[in-house]
Amino acid sequence: MAKVDNLRELDGQNGEFWVRNPWEFSKSGQNLSAYERNGVFLNGQSGDETQFHDIGFLSGADNTGDGRSVSAWDVTGDGRPELFVRQAGGGALVVYENRFPSGHWLKVSLRGTKSNRFGIGAKIVCETAERVIRRELYPHINFLSQSPAMLHLGLGESEQIRRLTVHWPSGQKQVLENVAVDRHVRITEDDPTLETIQAR
């Protein structure tokens, strides 16, 4: 970093600072991207038009801590995913309970026989009267976080799933028709029966 002698005198009283070497910022004792509100964006996709609504403030999950990672899953049993927010400061763990007025839902655990046991890499196509939902079971494994190796499907107003297709990593394809909603089910590769783990 070049040494410049004629840089201005800083207004220390009002907290002005200037860090010449970015590698030393964490030692500077200054705010950097400080008290930023964690972002929450509601997916408003409509047809081909993509839109996300900033719902941070309305959600109340716009924590100002120094956020590092997040995992999501329903732990209260009502089918609505909670958030587990991990932060370096400002609340090391914050658990947010989901109170969105809920649509219907289905949680799916997979049991591979030829495929790996948890069905990681499987693709699911869920057809309801409202829409076609497509998911891949690559559990969210991110920086300092992991969500469970299961799928969570939000189903809106649909009270039944017309068809649920599992494309297993083995190449096997499995189709289930008229699946009941608001429950946690287990689908085993090559087994036509659907096991309910928990019904609401």
């Binding site: 995913p81 932060q87 007025p101 300092l144 969570h152």
Partner: peptide, 27 residues
Amino acid sequence: GWAYGPTYVDLNNDGLVDLYAPVGFQS
């Protein structure tokens, strides 16, 4: 803001995945 590991999550169970983005470096 200064972002770290985010996640997709369907918060309102409408079949469209939403986003949560943890942010903030040093407060």
